[in-house]
Design a protein around this nucleic acid. Structure first.
Lengths: 350, 350
DNA sequence: AGAGATTATTAACACGCGTTAAACTACAAT
DNA sequence: ATTGTAGTTTAACGCGTGTTAATAATCTCT
């Protein structure tokens, strides 16, 4: 670095105007106040000097950082193997670029939520935040709600009045299991996508229960396993299920990531999908269409969720009252090759 | 928001000290200057008032934002289906949290690189940046180099003197193809991980060429296909390869993501891996061990790469001269189930 | 041409904190 | 008591920009 930083003062000097004028040129909304030829002169001077407005100074003076935060509620270890995440990030990056915003990524440790949220919002490094996969047991959410900090949840927490964008996990899961039942399956296992402290996990599990109930199938708790976001956990849980309690002809795995592991365990046991076991996943991550077999799964429009969350947050930031503080994105069951009608031989009598 | 923001002035007042003292308490390095009991009083006052130092003001005054940027060189569409990315982000998040830094994510449009880099660094929203998968044809890199902006490449560009952290793509790829040759394969196809403008793609392709050359196998250009990061492109390219030129017994796919699509195309053609075609991937993403069949692939320590990049950048930020400005992380061939000795019947004579 | 109305520009303060150099305190040594 | 000294604290300035209220320039209309 040889030469000093270029400030708006230098630009003003070169353009023969005052610093305020330069500032006005750079705040888009009031452009009408500046005569076009003056603005042109300022822009040229800025270009010549290589002037870029200092973000920190702007943030300090205007009290907004033009940056939003994406807050994740799990540790990096689980972030590293989440194939749903890139879709969210991609979706956000798209909008954020259009809107000239920055995107800051953070994660919170369980037990530190309250402090982290408060710090993030008060430090004003970010103007607002999007919280990915919120947890029931997060005491920080109440604080956010009471303090009225701009915030959008990606996922819904019952009893929490924060704005959110989500799919209807429960009915979507029911849809998936309904389909298995429709194919003639009665003994249907379930592996969750994550610990039930995560709202999406417990809601999907509820949907599974709903479907069984609606079809008058007795719930067998031993057919339920809890996974942990990634394929490895799906593998473990499926293996366990197959050795402990192998009497099921179909399974609902509440996350494609987890389903990949489950598939591996099934193959390893010498069984095949869908011949021996029908499997329905959840999320429809881009890879699901290329798994072996191609996954029947619930399509979750990740990009849309990201976009809606972002727009909703932006409305809150502008102080506008959004049309609705809660947005539900419809899902859709995608039928591919991992499911089929039950074989006669699989039907066990009670 | 009912009450005004709490500033260091308020804390100072309540603690009965001056604002400077508060500031000293919050800058760790000079804590020795403040008497423990005074510091205690300040901390208590801060706690009572709910004081959090304003990030923008700090950044402005100290000329450092304590935030680093992760810059991606492709569009959100390709970010959304990159399963290598979460590992990088997870790795960075880990370090960044320990070091109390922020992580800002950005992407650059081709053609806008120069401007984007300059803006990012001059606006001082970030102190330095990590550029993921740099491209040969990126004119912005020169600018970064000449201006001496703190920056680390994740990936190496020949002729570019910016600090980097990378694996040896070329020799790693050679290793993979050597293994196929060792198994008796002579007709070996290749699908790249991305366009050859990305250094990793062209380097891996070079490694493929090296291996063939070393084994005196004539290079057949028609066995080479260019993919585009994701499974979909792998599927397309493989399908094309199988219809256009089906005479190969093995294939090197320079990315596990792409390999997943390739596998699907192979299955769809009624062939199987490794019986009909042996396949070696690259990256060893966490899912590779659960693909069907489990992928033989080159393990790329993503977490380590992320960590080393982060540490290297931090050294540059502190003005320290790092032990080495270029770091190479060793890779390792992981042998699983997607490769095997060639069948006699596959050996064609020339 | 001159008063009034409009528009363009500027001066001056504010944003909240880091940091240097100076001022103050307490205490030991003279 | 005075001086010296190390240890604490503070006053005051600067970081680069946004924004308001006031001033200057331009235009409109009679």
């Amino acid at each position: 670095m040889n030469n000093k930083r270029v400030t708006s003062f230098d630009v003003a000097e070169l353009a023969g105007v005052s610093r305020s004028t330069v500032s006005f040129v750079y705040s888009e909304d009031k452009q009408s106040r500046i005569r076009p030829e003056t603005r042109q002169r300022v822009r040229e001077a800025a270009e010549k000097l290589g002037y870029y407005p200092n973000a920190s100074a702007r943030a300090l003076a205007s009290n907004q950082s033009n940056t939003i935060g994406l807050i994740m509620t799990r540790s990096p270890r689980y972030i590293a193997s989440d194939n749903f995440l890139p879709q969210i990030i991609g979706g956000l990056l798209d909008i954020v670029k259009q809107e000239q915003l920055g995107l800051l990524i953070e994660w919170v440790e369980p037990g530190q939520q309250m402090q982290t949220y408060l710090q993030l919002s008060h430090a004003k490094h970010i103007d607002g935040m999007i919280i990915l996969t919120p947890r029931f047991d997060d005491p920080g959410l109440n604080a956010l709600e009471q303090l009225g900090i701009p915030c959008v949840l990606m996922g819904q927490i019952p009893g929490c009045n924060l704005p959110y964008v989500d799919i209807d996990n429960r009915s979507s899961a029911k849809l998936a299991v309904d389909y298995l039942i429709e194919l003639g399956h009665h003994q249907i296992a379930c592996i969750t996508n994550a610990a039930t402290a995560y709202s999406s996990a417990s809601q999907r599990l509820e949907g599974y229960r709903d479907a069984l109930k609606a079809a008058d199938i007795a719930l067998d708790e031993s057919l339920i396993r809890i996974a942990d976001f990634d394929a490895a956990s799906g593998y473990t849980q499926m293996k366990d299920l197959l050795t402990e309690y192998p009497r099921f002809s179909a399974i609902f795995v509440a996350s494609d990531n987890v389903a990949l592991g489950a598939l591996a365990a099934i193959h390893e046991a010498g069984l095949s999908v869908p011949e021996d076991i029908s499997l329905v996943g959840f999320d429809d991550i881009p890879e699901a269409a290329f798994y072996y077999p191609k996954l029947t799964t619930v399509h979750t429009p990740a990009k849309e969720i990201a976009e809606e969350s972002c727009y909703l947050l932006m409305q809150l930031l502008k102080g506008e009252t959004p049309f609705s503080r809660t947005i539900n994105i419809p899902t859709q069951l995608i039928i591919r090759d991992s499911t089929r009608m039950i074989e006669r031989s699989h039907i066990t009598t009670y």
